[in-house]
Amino acid sequence: MSRDLKNFKGLYGEHQLPFPENFIHRELLAVRSKLYGWEIDQHLHTNLYQLFIFTAGSGTLLSEQQHLSLQPPCVLMIPANTLHGFAFQAGMEGDVFTFSESSLEHLFSDAQHVLLEIKKLNQLTFDHSEISFNEIVWLKDKTIRELDEVQPEKQYTLQHLTQLLFLSLYRISLRSETPVPPSDNRTLTYFLTFQKLIRQGLNEPKSVQHYARELTITTVHLNRICQAIVKKSALQVVHEFLITEAKKYLLNTTYSLSEVSYRLGFKDPAYFSRLFKKQTQLSPRAYRQQHGGRL
Rank of each mutant, 00 (worst) to 15 (best):
L70C: 14
T46R: 15
L62K: 12
Q50F: 00
F88L: 07
Q66G: 06
M77L: 11
F88A: 03
H67S: 13
L48F: 02
G94R: 03
H43E: 09
G91V: 06
C74P: 11
T60C: 13
L61E: 03
C74Q: 04
G91E: 11
F99Q: 01
L51Y: 03
F88D: 03
S69C: 15
L48M: 12
Q50Y: 00
P72F: 04
P72I: 04
S63R: 11
A80L: 02
F88M: 06
P79C: 12
F86H: 01
T46V: 05
V75D: 04
H84Q: 14
T82H: 05
A56Q: 14
G59S: 10
I78P: 00
F99S: 02
T82N: 05
L70F: 14
M77R: 04
Q50T: 12
H67W: 09
L76F: 10
L62V: 05
L44H: 13
S63G: 05
E64T: 11
D95E: 07
F86C: 04
Y49H: 14
L70A: 12
A87V: 15
L44V: 00
I53P: 07
H45L: 00
I53V: 11
F86S: 01
S100W: 00
T82A: 04
C74A: 06
E64V: 12
A87N: 15
L51K: 02
G59N: 05
G94D: 12
C74S: 08
T55F: 07
F54L: 15
P73S: 00
P72K: 00
Q66F: 10
L83I: 07
E64C: 04
E64Y: 11
G85H: 12
Q50I: 00
Q65W: 08
L51N: 05
M77K: 03
N81I: 02
T82F: 01
M92Y: 13
P73F: 00
Q89D: 15
F54Q: 02
L76K: 08
Q66W: 04
V75Y: 10
M77I: 06
T98K: 05
A87K: 15
P79M: 06
Q50M: 09
S58G: 12
C74F: 04
L76D: 07
S69H: 10
F86Q: 00
E93C: 03
H43M: 14
Q71W: 08
Q65M: 11
G91K: 09
D95G: 03
H45E: 04
N81E: 13
F86L: 05
T60A: 10
Q42I: 08
F54T: 02
Q65S: 08
S63K: 09
Y49T: 13
D95N: 09
E93K: 07
A87C: 15
M77N: 02
Q65G: 08
G59D: 04
G57W: 07
E93L: 08
D95S: 10
C74G: 06
F99A: 03
A90L: 00
G59E: 04
T55N: 09
S100D: 11
L83G: 06
G85T: 12
T60E: 14
M92D: 08
Q65F: 11
V75S: 07
Q65T: 10
T46P: 13
F52D: 05
A90W: 08
D95W: 02
F54Y: 14
